[in-house]
Amino acid sequence: MRKTSYILLAIALLCTALEANAQKERNKSIIRSALNGLHYSVRASYGIGGVSPLPLPAEIRGIDSYRPLVGIALEGTVEKQINKVIGIHIGLRLENKTMETVADVKNYGMEISSDGARIKGNWTGKVKTTVRNSYISIPLLMTCKLSPRWKMRIGPYFSYLISGDFSGEVYDGYIREGGPTGTKVLFEGDATATYDFSDELVKSNWGVQLGFEWRAFSHLNVFADVQWGLNSAFPKDFETITFKMYPIYGNLGFAYAF
């Protein structure tokens, strides 16, 4: 999984480099494009966020720990200025959405499946979840110039899951087999059970993106975006996690504008 994302990042970097080499020859056409209101940029950002139900269901009693892991996004962007204020932003983005959380849950309906065996029950205790998803995404945004240096943008994005890892373990608690009145079995000390729902992740995701960009130098902009997923990371018929899980990420990065 991680290998794939590294390869994709490498390809993206290579494209950027090639583009840089070809820059001189293309300077003229860039200037011509700019006169037509077309602007090109490459951007890199670091994302922090999580895949989470919203609002948190009552079964989740606390978040013990949260680590963002490494979430990098690389994007090539074309912007078309329609008038002095409004413009359109279209990009092609390769990104990782990652996190690692430990939550305290109470009576949380879950299923542990392993080698065809499926144990269904209600878990009270710790749940550790690791998410490492890689997407190829297309943001389709409207931009709005707020001042000569400030720009706001908003619009939908569409993502396709290239590789997904949604897995974890349960420990330090107990399961009630079959339901809340079923046999109670403690998991103490080294006793942990792992789960892996990677294969259940939906491939197509979409959501809205809202961001601000500040022009620091003539070619260098810094920006911040929020990506708010609007379809669940798991399909409707996935019974184990009964609530919808939305990816919500904030990105902070810089853009090189040609």
């Binding site: 922090i48 966020g49 999580g50 989470s52 609002p55 948190l56 269901p57 009552a58 079964e59 989740i60 009693r61 606390g62 978040i63 949260y66 996190m99 109470k106 009576n107 929020v226 919500i248 990420y249 904030g250």
Partner: peptide
């Protein structure tokens, strides 16, 4: 935002 999700813990469900 996600980093402060802990502040959105709901009331404890009945046992």
């Amino acid at each position: 935002g996600a980093a402060t999700l802990a502040s959105c813990i709901q009331d404890e469900p009945l046992n």
